[in-house]
Structures are given as C-alpha cells and as structure tokens.
C-alpha cells in the first residue's frame, strides 16, 4: 500500500512539472493552435495543483472561466484567423493527435486527484476555511466582501478602465453609414405604424401551384 501523503506529494510535483512543461510549449511551439492547446493544459494542471491545496472554488473557476470560455474563444480566433475554409476542415484531423494527448494528460491528472482524495491524504497546508468550519466557497465569499472589499472594488475599477479603453481604441464614427435611430423608433405613434388600405377584391390571373395546394 502506498503512503497517501507520499502519493499526494508525488502528484503535486507531477502536476507542477506538467504545468511548467505545458507553459514552455506555449511559447516554444510554432503552431499557434498547438500553443493554445498547451495553454489549456497549463491552466488545467494549475487547477489540479489548486485542488490539491484544497482551493476548490478557485480551481473550478479557473476551469470554467479560462479553460471553458477564454481558451475556447482563443482557439476559435486562432483557427479562423486568415485561414481558408478547407484548411479548417483539414485542421480538425491534423490537430487531433495533439488534442488527444492533451485530453489524455488531463484524464490522468483527474484520476490522480481522485486517488489522492480516496486515500484521505493529510491536508497540504493550513486551511482557514476548514478551521472556521465553513465551505471553501463560503469562506472566500465572506473574505472577499469584508476583508478584501477595497481590492475587490478596485478590481472592478480596472475592468471599467478596460471597457473605456476598448471603446476609445476601437470605436470609429464612420461618415455616411446608415444606422437605426432608436429615438425615432420609440417615439413613433402606433396609429402611424400600420396603414390599412381598402382595396377591391381581385382574382389572381394565374394562381401558382403552391397556392393551389394551400387552398385545397
């Protein structure tokens, strides 16, 4: 039987090694799609290290936000940049081996994590959440809105600056472009929207086949 704590330590070093190797491949690989896949692996392995340290919320947030949303977006952008449609279709097969390798490493990491938990290894560091007798997420939420309220708000300011900068750097007022006028749309009188016109009934001279069908 393996010592659970030793196994945990081995896992820690293994996850760290994978993280560093994957991060290195991000900057060393020439193919940008491979680089993005390596970045996904970097994030995933970091999340595994965090899970070992019992920071469950952070680990899940990293997976959901970065791997799930940001990196998939990256992957779409990289794959669509300046590439013709046929190449993209070929690309699926071409990138499959690397994708499989990344997926396989992730699977091994997940199994290792389950192993650590199943063996009831001793916690790696002092866990304030466990000491306070609340869940990790609840403790994080409380800390974020009391002790770390000011940094939290400053982070919100930084995001605001990001939005302002993005608008300032990309918004261009083109002259001669047509756009809808929301004011006119809202201000319109319902009675002027639809005009009912009385017409004398007329018979179509050559009814089409489709209309024939619907009539019968």
């Amino acid at each position: 039987m393996i010592d659970p704590n030793l196994f945990q330590l081995v896992c820690f070093y293994a996850f760290s090694a994978v993280t560093v190797l994957a991060a290195l491949s991000v900057i060393l690989l020439r193919n940008s799609v491979h680089a993005v896949l390596a970045l996904v692996l970097t994030f995933f392995s970091t999340a595994c290290v965090w899970l070992l340290a019992e920071a469950e919320f952070l680990a899940i947030a990293l997976i959901v936000v970065y791997v799930g949303a940001v990196m998939v977006l990256f992957l779409f952008v990289v794959m669509m940049l300046d590439i013709k449609q046929e190449q993209v279709r070929e690309g699926f097969i071409r990138y499959l081996p690397v994708g499989l390798v990344v997926a396989l490493v992730m699977l091994v990491e997940m199994l290792a994590l389950i192993g650590v938990r199943a063996m009831h290894a001793v916690s790696m560091g002092a866990d304030p959440a466990a000491a306070a007798g609340v869940s990790n997420t609840a403790w994080l939420g409380t800390a974020l809105y009391t002790q770390y309220l000011l940094p939290f708000e400053v982070a919100a300011l930084i995001l605001t600056v990001g939005v302002i900068a993005a608008v300032a750097l990309t918004l261009r007022h083109r002259t001669g472009s047509r756009h809808q006028s929301a004011g006119q749309q809202v201000g319109i009188d319902p009675s002027r929207r639809v005009r009912v016109v009385k017409m004398a009934a007329v018979r179509a001279e050559e009814p089409e086949a489709v209309q024939e069908e619907t009539r019968t």
Partner: peptide
C-alpha cells in the same frame, strides 16, 4: 497598506496609461 493594493493601484495606473 497591502501588497494586493500595491498591485491593483499599479494596474489601474498602467492600464490607463497603455490606452
């Protein structure tokens, strides 16, 4: 008064400067 605040203040300053 805290390393977190040093970092966040700096980021607010530099991000605005980049733009």
């Amino acid at each position: 008064g805290n390393l977190v605040m040093v970092y966040l203040g700096l980021e607010l300053l530099t991000l605005s400067s980049y733009a």
